[in-house]
Design a binder for these strands. Structure first.
Length: 586
RNA sequence: GCGCUUGUAGCUCAGCUGGAUAGAGCAUCGGCCUUCUAAGCCGAGGGUCGCAGGUUCGAGUCCUGCCAAGCGUGCCA
């Protein structure tokens, strides 16, 4: 319907060109939108106001010429010029009923589009370090990322979802060492736990499992472990130096292979937990990409070599630097430390090179907003590798600020005091979680009151939308209980009986669904779909209260049933896409 | 200090990429269940869109400068 009007306008512009009102090479951007007020018709365009200047006419005069040049079409019953020069279109009322048939014919495919044209897009999201369970901050990234991926898929993109596993680096060594120390405690050794270690209860669980499986295979005495270590922070030392020395001690006492086993035990258990957690949350991935694999297959070396060949590497203070400031970053960045180890950033350069090599048309990274300073250096790296940096789109998710009632909840993985995603899901339920997370724009700071979210009361707006679906189901059950049969064809033949204002509004809203879905997808804004759902549910509830569906008149009854079945279908389509359930009774 | 993000009703947030009289939910107040589920509906009050300029037919939306909050500014990840 919208495309049809746009093409009519485009034809009118062509006519104006032949009349010499517009330059021949002028390219007009058609801007057609839904009107907010029914008095202004169904669609409006500001075309005349935009073209007033190049046409050297005032907007209202130009609008008249455009309207005159507009080809006649059965779809449009009236065209008005209003206000400063808006052109308002009134759609033939008969055509608005078509949407019911369209929805019911298309079923679960109603709303899908092909604007993505099969282009390959990769969406990388969550990618939390496997040093502990996911917390509620990761939950927002998970809900948002999977919604973005699913929206893009609905818009015709070929989507691949990926989780980047940071299974290398210092944080993982700290985890492995923490697991080992708790394991030694389980063996009966008495020794202080480092202030910078991972103190969470889950570390003890991993250690207990390790002890069960391996017995005292990895046991060393506390004297061996603690001999000549630099002091920890509570003893007046430096906690970073202390933990680094402990890591080295673990490696030397255990040897490469045993240390690797302890390390792997921690990694495997945490990663399995994360995978289960996300699966239960309705989030799935095609690929779990290991950072360590980039080292094992020398991708990092290759990436650095390419940067070097391109002339972007230099050595200073014993370290190797990437001259990212030449490509828009605020300063240069170290890629190889003076101790010979590559940095996390070096891994990330190799990782993005790998993504580019896989031939995606578009790469979407979803990061916590605290990583925003990282964007310029990654884009700089892509440019230095000779890639088109506009292929990379970084979307930021603000961390929710947690409150428990009035009190702010502190979050730190290290201290072990955090609310996990699993806890939240258990308390609020998956549906409310997903709805709540995705309800707001991702870059918006959001206050998340756990008391409110876990109160399982009607304040969770997800119930409002689900209730609309349950009510339609209930009506259909009632129909059956009364011993009446649906007659869809009779309903279709009598859709023109749907003349109540609620019915007209609902028909319009149904026809907007494909546009809403498309807009949510191309803008990476799932909250727009939520907005749409709330509007649709609201109009349905109003309709429900204002009119009886199961009326004696068979024609009217079936027409109304067809309408509410179409509503039900759209609710199912959108909620299913968001991985939210559609209960038939509540 | 510099950079990024945010600032809209008492609270939490939308506002369709610059359009017509700025909208929801919660909270407050007043109505609606002998009729398909009241987790619902109808109505009322509530606004200097952080502040000040600018751009134009038109600005919550764009540009500049302030103010405030969050984050970033590691040879951590």
């Amino acid at each position: 319907m919208k495309q049809k009007l746009e093409s009519l306008l485009q034809q009118a512009v062509t006519v104006l060109k032949t009349q010499g009102i517009l330059e021949n090479d002028f390219i007009a951007q058609i801007n057609l939108e839904r009107t907010r007020d029914a008095q202004h018709g169904d669609f409006a365009t500001n075309l005349a106001m935009l073209l007033a200047k190049p046409a050297k006419l005032n907007p209202r005069q130009l609008a008249e010429k455009i309207v005159a040049a507009l080809p006649a079409d059965g779809l449009v019953t009236k065209v008005d010029i209003a206000g400063p020069g808006f052109i308002n279109f009134f759609i033939n009322p008969d055509s608005q009923f078509q949407v019911v048939q369209q929805v019911l014919d298309a079923g679960s495919e109603f709303g899908l589009s092909n604007i993505g044209a099969g282009k390959r897009v990769q969406v990388e999201f969550v990618s939390a370090n496997p040093t502990g369970p996911l917390h509620v901050g990761h939950g927002r990234g998970a809900a948002y990322g999977s919604a973005v991926a699913d929206l893009l898929a609905a818009a015709g993109f070929q989507v691949e979802r990926e989780y980047y596993v940071n299974d290398a680096g210092r944080q993982m060594d700290i985890l492995a060492t923490s697991v080992w120390l708790r394991y030694l405690e389980a063996c009966g050794e008495v020794l202080p736990f480092p202030s910078n270690g991972y103190r969470g209860e889950y570390v003890r669980d991993i250690s207990a499992n390790l002890y069960k499986k391996a017995g005292e295979h990895y046991r060393r005495t506390s004297e061996q472990v603690m001999a000549d270590l630099p002091a920890d922070e509570p003893q007046g030392g430096d906690k970073e130096k202390h933990i680094d020395a402990l890591i080295e001690r673990a490696k030397s006492l255990l040897g490469v292979s045993q240390y690797g086993e302890v390390f792997q035990a921690g990694l495997d258990e945490i990663l399995d937990d994360i995978k289960d957690d996300l699966a239960e949350f309705g989030v799935s991935y095609q690929e779990w990409f290991s950072e360590r694999s980039l080292m094992d297959d020398h991708s990092i070396d290759q990436a650095l070599q390419r940067l070097d060949t391109a002339g972007f590497l230099y050595i200073k203070d014993g370290a190797t630097w990437f001259a990212s400031s030449r490509l828009g970053d605020e300063k240069d960045r170290v890629v190889v430390r003076d101790n010979g180890q590559t940095t996390y950033f070096a891994s990330d350069i190799a990782y993005h090179m790998n993504k580019l090599d896989r031939g995606f048309d578009q790469i979407v990274n979803i990061w916590g907003a605290d990583h925003h300073g990282y964007i310029p250096r990654v884009k700089a790296a892509m440019q230095a590798l000779g890639a088109d940096e506009s292929k990379l789109k970084v979307l930021l998710v603000q961390f929710a600020i947690l409150y428990r009632g009035e009190e702010k909840v502190q979050m730190s993985t290290r201290s072990g005091e955090f609310v996990t995603l699993r806890q939240l899901r258990n308390e609020v339920g998956k549906d409310a979680c997903r709805f709540f997370y995705v309800m707001r724009k991702s870059e918006q700071h959001m206050d998340f009151d756990l008391k409110l979210a876990t109160s399982r009361s009607n304040e969770n707006p997800v119930y409002y939308v689900q209730y609309a679906h349950a009510r339609v189901c209930s009506v259909l059950r009632q129909l059956d209980e009364k011993g009446r049969q649906r007659n869809p064809q009779l309903g279709m033949d009598n859709l023109n009986l749907l003349i109540e204002e609620q019915e007209t509004a609902l028909l319009t809203t149904l026809s907007k669904y494909p546009e809403a879905l498309e807009r949510a997808a191309v803008n990476y804004e799932p909250h727009q779909l939520i907005q749409y759902l709330r509007e649709l549910a609201n109009q349905f509830h109003s309709y429900y209260n204002a009119h009886q569906f199961l009326v004696d008149d068979d024609k009217l009854c079936n027409a109304r049933i067809n309408l509410i079945c179409a509503i039900k279908q759209v609710l199912v389509n959108a909620l299913t896409l968001l991985k939210i359930n559609t209960p038939e009774a509540m």
